[in-house]
């Protein structure tokens, strides 16, 4: 089960980015998981929770977005959902797909984090002005 390795990689990457940005707590992470990425979302969610504990990601929510596999045919330019198990020969003309357009993503799309006590001049100035 490599979901633990994947979860740890996600946590590690977000941790590093959070640290560099001075974020103090990560609230949520959007992760795109392709149908053909070879990752089981449920087991990833389970591992993610474990991997977060004791880090700046503790308690963060993992929002996984499943990305369906899509392929394109060269000769007839047909595009189709490959399904599972995937059909990588063109349903129209039978040729091998020219390319897989989507479906192998394993990508941290975005995060939402707290950036800590920002030295916010507006917040301090307002009481003084009153």
């Amino acid at each position: 089960m490599h979901e633990m390795s994947i979860a740890m990689a996600v946590v590690g990457q977000v941790e590093e980015a959070a640290q560099a940005a001075g974020a103090t707590a990560v609230r949520s992470i959007r992760l795109q998981v392709g149908e053909l990425a070879g990752v089981v979302p449920d087991s990833l969610a389970f591992c993610f929770e474990l991997a977060c504990s004791g880090t700046v990601l503790e308690g963060a929510e993992l929002l996984t977005e499943s990305v369906p596999g899509r392929a394109r045919c060269g000769p007839c330019a047909d595009e189709w959902a490959v399904g599972m198990p995937p059909e990588l020969c063109c349903p129209v003309c039978g040729a091998a797909a020219a390319e897989l357009l989507a479906g192998r993503e394993l990508q941290i799309a975005g995060v939402c984090w707290e950036e800590g006590p920002v030295p916010a001049p507006t917040r301090e100035r307002i009481p003084e002005e009153r």
Binding site: V10, L106, I108, A109, V111
Partner: peptide, 10 residues
Amino acid sequence: CRVVDLQQAV
């Protein structure tokens, strides 16, 4: 809370 578009392959 700040939304950041990381776009990093895992």
